[in-house]
Amino acid sequence: MEIKTMAGWHEFAEKNSNGSWDKYCKPGDLVGEDVYDYFLDVLPPRSMERGYLQVGEPHSHQANIITRKWQATYATFRRVEKGIWMYCGNCFAGMTWDADAASSSLEGFLKVTYRIEGSQRICRPRLVCKDGFSVSVQAGEDFQCAPREHRPDGDYESVELGNPSGLEELLVPYAEDKDNLLKTAYPYVPVELLKVVIEVHGGLYG
């Protein structure tokens, strides 16, 4: 995979009228240590831990799908290995998923909320719709979904839902416990059906 560098960014900017960082580098791209050093020196960091950096100046303000509040986003980097970092996009404080991609589509949500630390897969945040309906959406080797594997690209045919915030008739046929619909799992829910549910509830919050 290509490693984005400062030299590459400068070359890109010379050839394009809008040579901004976000035009050159997309969430998920790998970058070199020189890029990390540049953003580290631009301003005092907003957040900085071992293997994690958020640039100090907000990129934008938008709705957070988890907190349902209007919050600032920051250019964010996460170390992949020595000298190599991943650009996570413009993320909310303390997070590593691109705010725009997470609220643009279900596929975007599944892709940007994928995360593994060491051998441990980190659960995705709850998916929240504009009318307030929310539900746990999980997929990977540990869940009842298809394909049943960790997929960083978020490309699934079905996913496992759980603990919806309210009754949703479209999902009832998939409930494991039909006597406790708000506190049960919904295995192998087709992604296309979940898209319909999201539209019924006004679309993704964001």
Rank of each mutant, 00 (worst) to 15 (best):
V197I: 12
P164K: 05
C25R: 00
S104D: 10
A7P: 01
Y87I: 00
L53E: 03
H61E: 14
K4Y: 13
H10T: 15
A146S: 13
A7T: 15
R124G: 05
H59F: 14
Y205W: 13
D41V: 09
L204P: 12
G28D: 02
R148S: 09
E149G: 13
V31Q: 05
S105C: 02
E169P: 00
I122N: 05
K23R: 14
Y186P: 06
I198Y: 05
A146F: 10
A13D: 11
C88W: 00
A102M: 07
D37T: 11
E176V: 02
R115F: 10
I122Y: 07
C123R: 12
T113C: 05
A185T: 14
P44I: 02
L110A: 00
E141L: 04
L106E: 08
A75E: 09
E11M: 04
V197N: 02
T73E: 13
R50Y: 14
V128K: 12
D98A: 06
F39Q: 00
S105Q: 04
G89K: 09
P152R: 07
G83M: 04
K130G: 13
D98H: 14
E192Q: 11
V159R: 00
H201G: 10
F92M: 03
G118Y: 07
Y36N: 02
R121S: 06
V196R: 14
C123H: 12
L127Y: 11
I122E: 03
G8N: 07
F109Y: 10
S104E: 05
M48I: 02
D100P: 01
A75V: 01
G108C: 00
M48Y: 09
M1V: 11
D100G: 01
K23M: 08
T73R: 08
Q144W: 10
E2S: 07
V196C: 13
P173I: 02
V135R: 10
R124P: 10
A101R: 10
G203A: 06
D155Q: 14
P125Y: 08
L161P: 06
R126C: 02
V196M: 11
K4T: 01
L204S: 10
R79Y: 08
E49W: 01
V42R: 15
A93I: 07
R115I: 00
W97S: 07
P173W: 08
I3H: 07
T67G: 12
G83C: 15
N16E: 02
V135N: 12
V191E: 11
A139T: 09
S136I: 15
F133N: 06
A101W: 02
Y74M: 06
H61K: 15
N64H: 11
A93S: 15
T96M: 10
H10N: 05
F143D: 08
W21C: 02
Y156N: 11
T73F: 09
A175T: 01
K23P: 00
K82E: 15
R148K: 15
T73Q: 13
K130W: 01
C25D: 01
F12H: 12
